[in-house]
Design a protein around this nucleic acid. Structure first.
Lengths: 339, 339
DNA sequence: TTATGGTGATAAAACGTTTTCACATTTTTT
DNA sequence: AAAAAATGTGAAAACGTTTTATCACCATAA
């Protein structure tokens, strides 16, 4: 293996001088600098990262931790991060955290001890995780995305879920919907509560009434399927003309329930989702689901840049940002009564 | 920062003894071993990876290099790799290689010098790349997937593209198609040549004739669009009843060209692709494309396990494997003349 | 009793960098 | 012309591990 000593010998200078040339430090005369650079190229020398990290106590890498790197939902987020990685000049590693707790702990240990300088964690799935506590405990720099973690002041990017839900109701209402049902996800997750609150607030703001049977608690996909069918069994004059779902998965299963009964979306009922999963799920083959979407690309890009700034001390911490959602218009919403 | 020295002091033993306990080396009495393990837990000590890598000359990590980590095409591959990562016990990092050559070189330098022990590279995009040459030059362990690199003996997973194309022709032919056109991609890529050869061979094996105008060379999406329209302008009695496309992108644009003329796929003509991109492209909204698909999940999983074996010296190198394709039946093929 | 071997533990030398400190040398200031 | 400051360079000490060589100890065998 080629070391800095070889370069020093080859260039006829000391090791420290070579190091200074590599690290762009001042105080080295142009002549010597050139000589060293020549030797480096001539020998094809590349500094060893492990040695460098050891003494510098930093690795120049940021790790992005996702539950499923392969999920299509993350595609935009990752795309943004790739962009951020490029413009930050840092190395961004992606790591997929498994389900097994032991493996997960090992992974975290690995990443936080001489592999990366900071961690970005996309969160909804980790709410209850000791991982964050651990990162705090060892005071390792990290940034949470969409992970509500109220007990501490941490760097976090949030999404305005409340407003997003309001927009959905507004969007439907502007299109003539007055009877809008809501399919709510697990209320233990703050995300779901926020969206629910947005829905109720927007409904009352617009003077729309949440009637009996308009609200369903959904804990799994088959419940979404059944709840949708229950809605369709209501007499037409009371039946909602639209269902706003807490997320795209629920929306997908609701639509499957509806079409299984011979009804059509959006002709017989409009359905709106949240999240913009591009391919929601393997067994779903219906129309693309109109939904509220998070600005994942921007959040991904910004997260890398923010962490870079945090590491460089160029920004005040904690960094807390809230992102607004937008509406993705696809094929599952139309005006009620459209032939 | 907590070091091994602190543990040694706390346990009242030497540094080397602690190291031996950590690394599961023999020659340490049960009593002392327990004492040390207790101290480690008590203090919450975690060994520093940089220091460890430095002296051991290995990092215990494998890096997977992809061009676009966010591409839906890679989803299955990644899923397989995640699985492999878990069962191999090694840490698998994913890295997204940008388009900028300078950034790419920096990335490779980073990864190969004290960050990971091996690299897996999914290849079709790198055929002409100096990256591989560089990895060879520094004799860094790596495995190529779907990257034909004939000049050297390297670890590689290949896909039987030739047979895949044969299967496609067979599949179409069994469904009654006799006039089958072929849209070929850049013939400088071996992948495309293999598929083309499979097509011609299968055609002749089945006694099917490749008529004038049945073969198109496609270099970009608009060419696919236009070539498809040219096909549709042929008199119905000569016109192919099916087009087999070299990849899904070409298929998608072909279908767009066809439908733009008012024809319908597969009613008026069947189209078959290759690769199984789940969401091919943003401007495509047609039916899901029937195609030949690679066993990406298996290849992903196996690649991690193979590299693990290579690093551990448990397998003979070079590791060369060829995977067979399967047929993904979706919505763009039917029997000719189906109403 | 004295060699001989085998254990279990330690001290010290790596590993390849960066960085501090000291030391010339040169330039600037008085 | 002397003193002070600035500049460029190198020697050596870190950084936190693993690993090699060594040593002390005890049991066994001669």
């Amino acid at each position: 293996m080629l070391t800095i000593k070889d370069v020093a010998r080859h260039a006829g200078v000391s090791v420290s001088t070579v190091s200074r040339v590599i690290n762009q430090v001042e105080n080295v005369s142009p002549v010597i600098r050139q000589k060293v650079q020549y030797s480096i190229k001539e020998l094809g020398y590349i500094p060893n990262n492990a040695a460098r990290s050891l003494v510098q106590r930093q690795t120049n890498a940021i790790t992005v931790l996702l539950r499923n790197l392969h999920s299509s939902f993350f595609a935009e987020l990752i795309r943004g991060m790739e962009n951020g990685a490029f413009s930050s000049g840092r190395n961004v590693l992606f790591y997929s955290l498994g389900k097994d707790p032991a493996y997960r702990d090992q992974s975290i240990q690995f990443l936080t001890n001489g592999v990366s300088d900071a961690i970005i964690l996309y969160g909804p799935l980790y709410t209850d995780q000791p991982i964050i506590e651990h990162l705090c405990a060892i005071s390792f720099p990290f940034l949470l995305i969409e992970n509500n973690f109220p007990t501490r002041q941490t760097n976090q990017f949030l999404v305005n879920n409340y407003e997003g839900a309001c927009h959905a109701v507004e969007y439907l209402s502007v299109r003539g919907h007055q009877r809008i049902a809501y399919f709510m996800g697990d209320p233990n997750k703050k995300v779901n509560l926020d969206r629910f609150n947005g829905y109720t607030q927007a409904m009352s703001d617009r003077g729309l009434i949440i009637r009996d049977g308009y609200l369903s608690n959904i804990y799994n996909s088959s419940q979404a399927y059944q709840a949708a069918q229950k809605i369709m069994r209501m007499p037409a004059e009371f039946r909602p003309t639209a269902i706003f779902c807490c997320n795209d998965k629920i929306a997908a299963y609701a639509i499957m329930g509806i079409t299984a009964m011979g009804f059509s979306v959006p002709k017989d009922i409009s359905v709106m989702g949240f999240d913009n999963h591009k391919i929601p799920f393997d067994d779903y083959n219906g129309p693309r689901i109109s939904c509220i979407q998070q600005p994942l690309y921007e959040m991904g890009r910004d997260s890398i840049l923010a962490v870079t700034d945090i590491l460089d001390g160029n920004i005040e911490t904690p960094v807390v940002r809230t992102y607004d959602t937008t509406i993705a218009e696809y094929e599952t919403v139309c005006e009620p009564g459209t032939p």
